[in-house]
């Protein structure tokens, strides 16, 4: 995704990127946020019944996804992975048609709840609701990549709450034994719906568990997009070169309630929520890029206009699309005639 002919200031050079990369990364963080905010407005306006949000996770998601090769590598994401999916090739329209569950929603054709993204075209595994199951799918994808010699890397993401599931243990153990080209990303936002991490984990950091599998466990500030990028790039290079999996724990913040059906003020104090706002990756990344002279006022203005246009367009498209026809609801339980 890197434009190797462009300008390279000192900030970009410090992580081996070009200025245009940084602008594009910022664009994805800002686009994911704008789509997410639009989803909440549409929910509160009664247009869509449910929202599950990625606000606060976008910086980590963009930074971590950036070093992967599109249409080559694989991602098994989770329900907060809006920025991940956008960075890996899905469009704003794809995100909002999923919220409306339209017939043409590319994730599921309106069959799944919003947030359950997926795209065969973009090597994004379809998301389900039982948490952490996707880790094993990514491990299996990595196993197939190794056996087939494709050079692919499979990356999976989930929250720290999900990371307690048994599938995580089984999958990490196997991936480590076989040195599979696999990266495990935990987006630790401190809460599993309402339960704080201290009641979910007996250790301070999920990354500590990596030692139990004999793999590196890396902690990174999830509000620092470029730190996430650097950690991910190293893990992906390690995976691709046959040295096995890495666990990356990105410490992020959850800026919204768990979902549109949750009221987080019931279990989080106003002080805590205010403090967490300071960790919002969007303004932090913006300031960083402005100070480095990468994000000029002119570029910021242009991006803001582009993003507004994309979000409005996606909303209009999703609003205009039809519901799936119940006559199609029996399709694709099994393969049809074409063998797919």
């Amino acid at each position: 995704m890197t434009d190797r002919t462009g300008k390279q200031g000192s900030l970009a050079a410090s992580v081996g990127l070009y200025d245009d990369d940084l602008v594009q990364m910022y664009r994805y963080v800002a686009l994911a946020r704008a789509l997410d905010e639009r989803m909440w407005i549409l929910n509160r306006a009664g247009r869509i019944p449910f929202v599950i949000s990625g606000q606060g996770h976008e910086g980590a998601q963009v930074g971590i996804t950036w070093p992967l090769e599109r249409h080559q590598d694989w991602i098994a994401p989770f329900y907060r992975s809006i920025a991940t999916c956008l960075t890996f090739g899905m469009e704003a329209r794809d995100i909002l048609t999923a919220q409306y569950a339209t017939a043409l929603d590319p994730s599921s054709g309106g069959r799944q709840m919003p947030g359950h993204y997926g795209s065969h075209e973009h090597n994004i595994v379809s998301v389900s609701s039982p948490v952490a199951t996707q880790l094993l799918h990514a491990v299996g994808i990595a196993l197939a990549a190794k056996i087939r010699g494709t050079g692919q890397v499979a990356l999976t993401t989930m929250g720290e709450g999900s990371s307690n599931q048994g599938d995580v243990h089984e999958g990490l153990n196997f991936a480590a034994i076989h040195k599979l080209p696999f990266v495990f990303v935990v987006e630790n936002n401190g809460y599993a719906i309402s339960v704080p991490a201290a009641r979910q984990l007996a250790v301070a950091d999920v990354a500590d568990r990596a030692a139990g599998y004999g793999i590196p466990g890396v902690i990174v500030d999830g509000s620092d997009v470029l730190a996430c990028y650097a950690a991910s790039r190293e893990a992906i290079e390690r995976a691709r070169s046959g040295d096995g999996p890495t666990l990356i724990e990105a410490k992020v913040t959850r800026l919204t309630a768990h979902s549109s059906d949750d009221q987080q003020t019931k279990y989080r104090s106003a002080e805590e929520l205010a403090a967490e706002r300071e960790r919002d990756p969007l303004p932090l990344f913006r300031s960083q890029l402005e100070e480095a002279g990468v994000l000029t006022e002119e570029i910021a203005t242009r991006l803001a206009a582009e993003i507004k246009l994309a979000v409005d367009d996606a909303t209009d498209v999703a609003e205009a699309q039809v519901d799936p026809d119940p006559a199609t609801a029996m399709r694709f339980v099994y393969a049809e005639d074409d063998g797919r």
Partner: peptide, 8 residues
């Protein structure tokens, strides 16, 4: 297969 609308 069903949940991905025949994507996978």
């Amino acid at each position: 297969r069903y949940r991905s609308n025949n994507g996978y």
